[in-house]
Design a protein around this nucleic acid. Structure first.
Lengths: 198, 198, 198, 198
DNA sequence: CTTTAACCGAGACGGTACGTCAGGTCTTTCC
DNA sequence: GGAAAGACCTGACGTACCGTCTCGGTTAAAG
């Protein structure tokens, strides 16, 4: 997201302080009320240092949340593969349900989502940097399932992922229902029925 | 949403002017930049008259969009019923896809969604006043499908609705893929496969 | 100050409550911060009842202070007359000094004076209703002094009064020096020297 | 009067524009109706720039009038000294009378006085910055009169000044009588009689 | 090594909008 | 028809932040 007029002279220390302060403020006061001035003050940084490297408040917030995942970049995104697609997916979906229940997770992701909804540019970055890698890992596991005859060989994997995850995400986002392990199981079962081979 | 300090003395004329001005501003400048002062000016109303009856900017915006649907309250929410569930659902889903492509629809719904994401109170109102009635109409049609043996009799209809609609909604919200009639069809087919009877 | 559109139907009870509430508020919050709404609330009166009978906030405040003196209207304004003008004046001036030191006296009179400075209409009322009667009483005593040969027979009594009182009033108003009994005496002595007979 | 959070970074241009705009508004709309917002707009300045450097509206108004006199700071405050105290004082008092009749002088001084009446802090500044230097110049001339045997050697010069000026100032402030050259003369004569030597 | 230019913390600046307060008007309801 | 109640439009309040713009001070590459 940096404008990188040069980048070589950029203070990494300030950059980290800004991102950390932003994350802290999101947790404390909520996304809407995070102020650039507060970030600068908290980070011990001049406002200009923020404006030099980020084009908007949304971009800073976005980057600060993105940075969380980048820490785990080297991490193995690969899904478990026991040979039993249904069992593996249920494990992953139950983990996702648990993750959504974590209050530390709540505010930043709601902030990120609100940002993404209203800014097409950030939406593109979100897809490229966050969603795509994760989705590719999931699709890799689904392809394994196709090879093992547990999933229709001609299934549109993007569609399968949507059928699996979108109901869960929507329920969380709109608080329209409880997120339980059973719900995770039910989604996996429905998706596998929908894309059963042959 | 009003605080109703009394409500009997409330000026209906001012109320309508405020909601109309809010809708106009959402379309013109986008949700984030709608200012209470601008609403008041446009509506020919004192700021205090807004603050007297709504607790926050979000509430005004929410109400203004809600009012749109309330105009159509008497409207027939019922889905078409030709006896062919798949055909009927495809018709409805294709219509939904078309609706999401309407630019007049875009900004208010993104605004409403952003509001709902970050405010649990508004989320509850959204479910009660907007989502539930529509969902009930849809479920009524699904029940018809169950009776006709086109849908599993024991299917959790809330889950069916989520599998049908959440992928569509998420794709639109996050701009993560194209919304085409074919996509609508594919979703209907997947959902019906997932909840096929017996 | 009332507009007296009719006056016959006027509620004397409301009028008194308004004036009393105004006086109380002047003492409590100071002249600048007295609000019509607060007066109305405190007096248990509608705002319109105030606006019906007084043209402005200044007028209400002015009247409320004026009313204090009107209570004492029947009172004997006459100065003491022992035959010794100097002694009598010193007694009166020392009493005035004491009165100015009374904190309950402070705020209303400063309020009244500020009102009078900036509003020529109120200034005229102030002179007619408050200043003149008192000044006439003082001049009566001075005329006694002239007859007794203690004061120049041709002295301009308005000027004598000004030389006596203006220094005292100015010192209090601008807080430009201490108000002591000795100061009162010094003023009387100076004035009598200035207007010594023959 | 500035709070001087630093002062070195302060924009002198803005400061001057604010004071000039304030003076202009006092003349145009009168002291009571001068609004900070109007000052800021007229001066082409953000409101915060006013609040940053002045604690209250009164302080701005006070400073703006004070600045007028500071322009003339190097000015010769000394009174004429022809050797004839009475003639010199009459000249000065007649000049004062004329000054009070100047309408450009009217509104600012009434504004300043109203401010000083109700704010002890401003009163102190008023005495130190405006009144004292002028009074000292006058007392210097009076001392000359004492040396020349035209004024009692033991006269309290502060008292003499009050007897001379307070009546004039009060008459103007309360509009309680005409300000004429003859009145100026009468005051000088009375004061000199009151503090005649020997 | 020195220059020198970009980066940095700091924070004043012209602005916009906030949410509150009060002014004076208008309307409703009661007595 | 006066009066209590209070909603209404208006406009100023003082505050919070915006994004831009100097200020010195530091720092790291280029000379």
């Amino acid at each position: 997201m940096p404008k990188t007029p040069d980048s070589s002279r950029r203070s990494e220390h300030s950059r980290q302080a800004i991102l950390a302060a932003t994350r802290a403020l999101i947790s404390e006061v909520g996304y809407e009320k995070v102020a650039i001035e507060a970030i600068a003050a908290r980070a011990g940084v001049g406002k200009q240092t923020i404006y030099r490297w980020w084009p908007s408040k949304g971009a800073v917030i976005f980057d600060s949340i993105l940075a969380l995942s980048e820490d785990a970049d080297g991490r193995d995104l690969a899904l478990p593969d026991t040979g039993d697609l249904e069992a593996d997916l249920k494990r992953v979906m139950r983990a996702t349900v648990a993750e959504f229940a974590d209050p530390d997770f709540e505010k930043p992701i709601r902030a990120l989502t609100a940002e993404v909804i209203n800014d097409a540019g950030l939406a593109a970055q979100y897809r490229d940097k966050l969603a795509r890698p994760v989705d590719e890992a999931k699709k890799a596991r689904l392809r394994g399932g196709q090879r093992a005859g547990q999933l229709a060989a001609d299934a549109d994997l993007d569609l399968v992922l949507e059928v699996l995850y979108a109901p869960l995400f929507q329920r969380w986002l709109q608080r329209s229902g409880p997120l339980t392990p059973e719900y995770a199981d039910a989604l996996v079962e429905a998706a596998l029925r929908a894309f059963r081979p042959g």
